[in-house]
Nucleic acid binder design. Structure first.
Lengths: 199, 199, 199, 199
DNA sequence: AATGAATGAGACTTCATTCAT
DNA sequence: TATGAATGAAGTCTCATTCAT
């Protein structure tokens, strides 16, 4: 009931505890699913009392939201760092795709949690806006490329969605079959994306 | 815990009841999520007692498995009907994509349930085999196309995965933003797929 | 979360169960207090599972509200039955006081629960209206008596409040010291009330 | 569980802190109820850590007992100061009633806490003795008055209880409907009490 | 086939209290 | 004295499932 102030100052020990909870929960949620994983399982797993959980999170739902929020923030940052200062729109798309593949293959657990969150209305609404922004980001590069005559004209939003779909599905398959992030077939994906949008 | 014989003969009224349960459950599961939807909610929703549910399904989990099984069976049939007798491998791929887009836009709820099922290990194992088969189906057409010199050589499995990703992500976005299945930008998708794999 | 329809039809067995729960809870609540009495204690006390409680009541709070509602309804009915058809306003007051003393000494447990409910804002608001009505009922008789010159004029609401206070406090003391309802000093109370208001 | 020595000397700053805790707790307990008010809420409300609470009180229960003890002590003192040196027993009763009304209207929150305490056996036993003494005090004056022929003979204990009931109920109603202590209808109450006992 | 009452494990959460710092 | 992190028993409530009718 008493919600936790989102900007509450934590001691460094407190911050570590919180991170430990998040880390462990992400693993468990991804492994067995959000609902099948109980708060008891999480606190037992790191050997603390139940109260600790509620000292750092106001509810199990709040924990997932935090995980999603932080995860989506990080992937966005990762993408933008890869794109910054790249003048060629096709290169920006390529770099974005590579950054996504990298990040997703390093954070397969978060990806799985996002996939779950899409399946419950409680969480999905939080994700819609993020998706719209992400697709619009890519669509902008596509329109730039069309304007510059680099690719044939077409429906930028559908293309951006397709790119997103390619990136995520390849990451999903890879996550399920191969633990090594370095073996992601990024070049193949990039080639397909770039020829696919060439038109 | 007595399990229900999967091939048990049902009277036509019984079959209708069962379908009614499935239909209503699919809607609710897709809307609010599998776990947040209780068996009580389902039976209340169609105005029957709890016993009815357990007459037709041995458990809530069993119901979801049935939904998934029937759903995946149907989409596979739909795709194969669209491909049958088509000698050109690229046309087979195109027809398969179009069939998937059609089916998914007509069955967005099942799609959402499949997405959920991927997030829990209990169900995910059932899906892995299906995905492998589905990707291998497409990969076979791709290899045929490569052999016939219709497209450049490349990693057929990654390409097939990409095609699957495009198809599903476009369907997801469309399901969330546009209720009308006829407005799926199938031509755009097909163009991107075909040029994307052209190499 | 799913609240119980207040007009839900119960089988006669169901009604008995519900009554059993109410009866036992009233006893326990009165004995040890509302909060110190857990739902587990109640269901264990009558030897049923926890779910039974929530089949009949949507929450522990709901149970208390029901107890209060039914209790206050009954005392009101009891009073009004005692007053009906009595033309003399002083007799109406006397009969009302006697009826209250009777009912309270037969229902000391409910009285204690009402006293508790006054101490928490969640419940108190429900009680204010009831008190206002009850006092106004008595005040009306007092004004009638003043109009008819039976008693000296005065502040009818304060008088009615005083009568209420006398009745309840005598009942409280009696409940704590003497289990036998027949020994309530009703005549003494009535005499004090009647001379007190005479002015 | 180390209990706090009840007569422990506190620095003046310590005494202030303790008073601050008591004051704030009384307000919250009266407003929302004893159980719904957590220790965390109290210490947060005055901006100190949890340790502070347990420095001054050995438990939440101990805090309530202290509040009750101090409150009942004060009202008794207030009444006795009002009665001292008054030779006429009826005047003593009148003065006692006026003193009670005054004190209760100035300390409505404590009154509510006492009402709560009556509803849990843990606390009620502490209150029984106090009530018995208080009623016996008044009964003594009544017997004096009877002996002196000032009022008709009657059951002094019931009368004293009635007086207590009047006083408290008028205070309760006033506390809930009118914040201004000066508007208590003390004269009306006194008149009713005096004529009521006259017989 | 169907009902709806019953079960009870187990989920989430609260909170009085303790304790290292 | 004081803090705030930690404890863990205990509380309320949910819900898949069973079963007498």
């Amino acid at each position: 009931m008493m919600s936790i102030a989102p900007d509450r100052k934590l001691t460094s020990r407190g911050q570590e505890r919180r991170d430990e909870l998040v880390r462990y929960a992400v693993t468990r949620f991804a492994e067995r699913g959000y609902h099948p994983t109980s708060v008891a399982e999480i606190v037992d797993g790191i050997g603390v009392g139940k109260g600790v959980f509620y000292w750092y999170f106001s509810s199990k739902e709040d924990l997932l939201r935090e995980i999603l929020r932080e995860g989506l923030l990080r992937i966005r940052r990762h993408q933008q760092a890869a794109i910054r200062n790249e003048p060629n729109p096709l290169r920006r798309i390529e770099n974005g795709v590579r950054a996504s593949l990298e990040w997703l293959s390093d954070n397969t657990e978060v990806m799985r949690l996002v996939d779950f969150a899409w399946t419950e209305d409680t969480f999905a609404s939080d994700l819609r806006r993020g998706r719209a922004i992400s697709i619009e980001d890519t669509a902008k590069h596509l329109r730039d490329a069309m304007d510059q005559g680099l690719i044939a004209p077409g429906d930028a939003v559908t293309m951006a969605t397709a790119i997103r779909g390619i990136t995520e599905e390849v990451s999903r398959l890879h996550a399920d079959t191969d633990a090594d992030p370095s073996t992601i077939p990024a070049d193949d994906v990039v080639r397909m994306v770039l020829t696919g949008i060439a038109g």
